[in-house]
Amino acid sequence: MSESRLPGWKDLTLGLAILEPMSARNNLTGSWRSERPVWDHTKCIKCGVCQMYCPEACISQDADGYFQADMDYCKGCGICSRECWTQCITMQQEEV
């Protein structure tokens, strides 16, 4: 956060309470990632195990029923890939 956007002491909320629920979404943890999950739709059985076990709650289902990770948040832990029943998710190195 840049210095200029930080509030002064007069502008703080009561007791420093955070008033906007789930505002952690402003924090894009996708930048932590060194590997990304890639789904092979030919093997996917659309079971949703990947979504269920994601500690970031960043996997969603698209209109066709396939799953995808939100790269804004995916930290690349690889749990989805490890837990996938059909091994349809591979972790691929992020290229800079």
Partner: peptide, 27 residues
């Protein structure tokens, strides 16, 4: 197999939390 979808869909613990990669407690 398809029961994964039977978990309540509402997420109340938001993305963007700062837990380590693969954090069990966050899950």
């Amino acid at each position: 197999v398809y029961a994964a979808r039977l978990l309540p869909s509402q997420e109340l613990f938001a993305q963007g939390h700062r837990a380590c990669q693969g954090c069990g407690p966050a899950l």
